[in-house]
Each structure stands twice: as structure tokens, then as C-alpha cells.
Amino acid sequence: MILKVALAAFSLFLCSSATSLAADIKYRGWVTLKVGESIVLKGVRNADCDNTVPSWDHVRRGLPRSKLGVFSDGGAGTVQSKSCGNKRVGARGVRFKARKTGTEQLSIFSDGVRVTVK
């Protein structure tokens, strides 16, 4: 009985892990936020188009500086990548948290993102 419960729990864990990876991360080229709000701006994939999700440390090092907010880990998911033959690949979300009012244009891994904070 204990073994059955353990196997059921492990199966549930595997299913929830697969579901979290399957979450599609949308690219947002233009956002308006209030101070204190946050949003996932885009997903960053590995250069070799495999399904491995890049680490937050790897993604963090490639991000620009922002005068209006801070970036953090937006979690694992997938993106539909034209550069990878229009297939869905693993990606790391880039979350932006608004800290100061204003507008700025950012380039996040070659994609433009216009951020307005009110």
C-alpha cells in the first residue's frame, strides 16, 4: 500500500513538472505597468534550439540595465521559435518588476521591449 501511494505521488510530481515546462511564455513587446507590478516579458531559449531550459544565471548575465525596474526569474516554460524552425522549445521567462515611473526601450536578447511605468 505504501509503495502504491509513493508511486502515485511520484507520478503526480512528474505530471506537474511536465505541465510547468509546457507553459507557453508570451513575448510582450510593449507593456504598461504601475510601480510595484511585475510581468513576464519574454522567454529566452538556448542557442542550439534544444528543449533544455537555460539557467536563470545564464539569462541574467545577458540582460540590459533598466532605469525603471529590476529583472528576475520568470520560471521555466516554452516559446514558439521562428529561429528554431518554428518549433516549441524550452525557455526561461524574464520577469520585470516596475520600481520607478517613466518610459524606456530595452533590448532583451535581440527583441525590443518598450516599458512604461505609471
Rank of each mutant, 00 (worst) to 15 (best):
M1E: 05
L3D: 11
L3E: 14
L3V: 11
V5K: 13
A6P: 03
A6T: 05
L7N: 10
A8M: 02
A8K: 05
F10C: 10
F10Y: 12
S11F: 08
L12T: 11
L12N: 03
L14G: 03
S17P: 00
S17C: 08
S17M: 05
T19C: 07
S20R: 15
L21K: 03
A23Q: 13
I25F: 06
K26E: 15
Y27V: 12
G29K: 01
G29W: 02
V31T: 04
L33M: 01
L33E: 01
L33R: 00
L33S: 00
K34T: 05
K34G: 10
V35E: 11
G36T: 01
G36H: 06
E37R: 04
E37N: 03
S38G: 13
S38F: 04
S38P: 00
I39S: 04
I39A: 06
V40F: 02
L41Y: 11
L41F: 13
G43S: 12
G43F: 03
V44P: 03
V44Y: 01
V44R: 00
N46M: 13
A47N: 14
C49R: 10
C49T: 12
D50Q: 10
D50W: 14
N51G: 08
N51K: 08
T52S: 14
T52W: 08
V53F: 01
P54D: 08
S55Y: 13
S55Q: 15
S55A: 13
W56Q: 13
D57N: 14
D57G: 11
H58Y: 14
H58L: 14
V59Q: 08
V59M: 09
V59R: 07
R60S: 14
R60E: 15
G62W: 06
L63M: 13
P64I: 06
S66V: 06
K67S: 10
K67L: 04
L68T: 03
G69I: 07
V70H: 09
F71G: 01
S72V: 02
S72T: 00
S72L: 02
S72R: 00
G74A: 13
G74F: 05
G74D: 11
G75D: 13
G75V: 08
A76N: 14
T78A: 14
V79Q: 06
Q80R: 15
S81P: 13
S81Q: 09
S81N: 15
K82P: 12
S83L: 10
N86A: 09
R88S: 15
R88H: 09
R88K: 15
V89E: 06
V89P: 03
A91R: 12
A91T: 13
R92C: 12
G93W: 03
V94P: 05
F96L: 12
F96P: 00
K97H: 04
K97I: 02
A98D: 07
A98F: 04
A98R: 05
R99I: 02
R99W: 05
R99L: 13
K100C: 00
K100F: 08
T101P: 12
T103K: 14
E104I: 03
Q105L: 09
Q105E: 14
L106R: 10
L106W: 13
S107I: 10
I108K: 03
I108F: 06
I108T: 04
F109H: 06
D111W: 10
V113P: 04
V113D: 05
V113A: 02
R114N: 11
V115T: 05
